[in-house]
């Protein structure tokens, strides 16, 4: 079936800017993961200033914490530019409001980041901060999708197979991933041990596997769905192995007196690929809603 083009024009500048915002947000998630893994979250006790200045000496943990704040400020400004651009150039009203949602999310993120420092990292604030970061990153990736040329060229829709429905299942995957990310964040911020996050891993992987296999078996004629499913499962498998590596290094360095580079590396990669898993599952859910029509 030929794609059914949308009436909205492609804006290359806006799309590339959105891509830049998403990449910067991923970098911000990595920087946040480094702060937590290096136990640097309280190295700058004040907020919004750092040691009473805009630019403190970048030494030790201050480098990671203040660096995270600087990247966050940049992402915040980029998000404002995105919003203005969307309101000027975008014809789809809901896209303008998606830009507003992104800005509200990044502002809330900044405030949560400040609150958690001032309150000495209570686990529920830090975990909310970490989980909202993942949602914000997924939002920026969704904006990249919606502003892309291929999105605006329209989709080749296929009918949902009655014996293998995926429209609802595709929503279950990002919900499970978000819960798993929340459990991981709570474990990292010492709300409880990592047992809940580890126990959640086979459940989330199972749901993703179920969705991906169903797509490959029943909807592989649709190139977008096929690529989306293969991307999600590839990232998920990477994530599982990174999780095992992060856990093993934590056990190995349990008695260390400072964060060890190997543990920091695996843990930060696990956080970053967690963000990619979330974004990939959200993107696949979006693709399913667009490309798979309900059977009459």
């Amino acid at each position: 079936m030929a794609p059914n083009p949308t009436p909205f024009p492609y804006n290359r500048g806006l799309h590339r800017w959105s891509l830049l915002l998403a990449l910067c947000t991923l970098f911000l998630v990595v920087a946040g993961g480094v702060v937590t893994s290096r136990d640097a979250g309280l190295s700058v006790p004040d907020w919004p200033l750092s040691y009473g200045k805009l630019m403190p000496p970048m030494e030790g943990g201050i480098f990671y914490e203040h660096g995270h704040r600087m990247i966050a400020t940049t992402v915040g400004m980029f998000t404002i530019v995105s919003l203005v651009w969307l309101w000027i150039a975008e014809k789809r009203k809901w896209m303008k409001w998606l830009g507003v949602a992104a800005l509200l999310a990044v502002i809330t993120q900044g405030i949560l980041g400040g609150i958690t420092v001032l309150m000495l990292l209570p686990w529920w604030v830090s975990s909310t901060h970490a989980s909202l970061a993942q949602l914000f990153f997924s939002t920026t990736v969704a904006i990249v999708l919606f502003t892309s040329d291929w999105w605006l060229k329209g989709a080749s829709t296929i009918l949902e197979v009655a014996t293998a429905p995926i429209r609802k299942l595709s929503l279950a995957a990002p919900i499970c991933v978000l819960c798993q990310l929340g459990l991981g964040a709570a474990a990292r911020h010492k709300a409880f041990g990592s047992i809940y996050h580890i126990s959640g891993s086979p459940i989330v992987t199972g749901v993703i596997l179920w969705l991906v296999v169903r797509i490959l078996l029943n909807y592989s004629s649709n190139r977008e769905l096929r690529l989306g499913a293969l991307t999600l499962i590839s990232i998920t498998f990477c994530q599982v192995f990174l999780g095992i590596a992060a856990y093993m290094t934590r056990i190995a360095y349990a008695d260390s007196v400072q964060p060890m580079p190997l543990m920091v590396t695996f843990t930060v990669f696990h956080v970053a690929v967690g963000a990619l898993t979330m974004a990939a599952s959200v993107s696949l859910a979006i693709l399913v809603r667009r490309n798979v029509a309900l059977a009459a």
């Binding site: 405030i111 400040g114 001032l118 309150m119 000495l120 990292l121």
Partner: peptide, 21 residues
């Protein structure tokens, strides 16, 4: 407007001070 909540949140953050317990 949701942004009107921001000062309240900031106030809550500053007022609570550096106490976890």
């Amino acid at each position: 407007h949701p942004l009107a909540l921001l000062p309240l949140l900031l106030l809550a953050a500053c007022g609570s001070g550096p106490k976890t317990e």
